[in-house]
Design a protein around this nucleic acid. Structure first.
Ligand SMILES: [Mn+2]
Ligand SMILES: [Mn+2]
Ligand SMILES: [Zn+2]
Ligand SMILES: [Zn+2]
Lengths: 148, 148
DNA sequence: TTTCTAGTTGCGACTCGGTCGCATCTGCTG
DNA sequence: CAGCAGATGCGACCGAGTCGCAACTAGAAA
């Protein structure tokens, strides 16, 4: 059950300055939170963490920064099978794409990397004559612990 | 580019009566709409179609019926890459699971069936010791037409 | 057929995630 | 250090989805 590798922090900010995207105090804080996250965070969790650094940061700034990151393909947006509420979760795009596995009973989220996923995407690109920019595979069910 | 096969109508209602789930006028209408749909519908589209049969049916009844169908694993809930708004789309669960491919430019949704997807799910079940109940693979990008 | 009741519905109010317009502020370039 | 394009905070707004409750009805039982 291979796990995805973590990544060098500061990369998002580097990407911004390279592209001439303005770096503000608020954005720096949001990028930091996303880069140092150890689990999937939703917008309100990101906001709370950001506000521990700068309490004046507004909800809409977080949403606007998330939009920006999405537009540049720097983060992925996840549903995680709506384990909790209707909102979205976010994570840095890793070198290697991975699958999200959500236990519908205990709520545990597992990440899984496999070359079969890469092959499948290649097959879609070839057979459907489609250029994939973003992909998302989420599965829900029961983990081994929750089936006794 | 194989396409998923359609299915016999009346099945959802049959499932309900077999299980002793009460069939009401409103539910009958919602099931009909879902069974005869030729594309992915969101809750408000389903409501509008249902109301053409019985104008008194309420929004919340549609949502409650969708919940019921989800709980019984009779429909799948899709994001379709949020092509339009933040809501969900619904479709009858087919014999064969399929992938959803969304063109981010023209909005076209393509369905794609491949055994690689089945293999991938089997691999997840085996390698992660996980019992899959529901899965969803959505990809976004550009279709051949939209790349000239 | 009529009666009875658990389950369902319509309604209105509500929550929650996300967006937007606008006045103010600030990163950045010169 | 001045100027301004672009970003922020704020508040109002929107749409999707949920919920409590009184009224209604499907369908089993008499
Ligand atoms: Mn969803
Ligand atoms: Mn979504
Ligand atoms: Zn579990
Ligand atoms: Zn297209």
């Amino acid at each position: 059950m291979p796990l995805p590798e973590t990544q060098i922090p500061g990369r998002l900010q580097a990407y911004f300055s390279e592209r001439g995207i303005r770096i503000t105090q608020q954005r720096r804080a949001v990028l930091r939170v996303i880069e140092t996250a150890t689990k999937h965070l939703d917008a309100s969790q990101i906001l709370r963490k950001v506000q521990r650094v700068d309490a004046s940061v507004d909800r809409s700034t977080v949403y606007r920064t998330l939009q920006l990151l999405k537009r540049h393909g720097l983060i992925d947006e996840l549903d995680l099978m709506h384990i909790r509420g209707e909102g979205h979760y976010y994570e840095r795009k890793m070198n290697r794409e991975h699958i999200h596995i959500a236990c519908l009973r205990c709520g545990k989220i597992t990440e899984f990397v496999t070359s079969t996923y890469d092959k499948l995407k290649q097959q879609v690109e070839k057979d459907c004559h489609f250029k994939i920019l973003v992909s998302r595979l989420e599965v829900g069910g029961y983990c081994s612990a929750c089936r006794q």
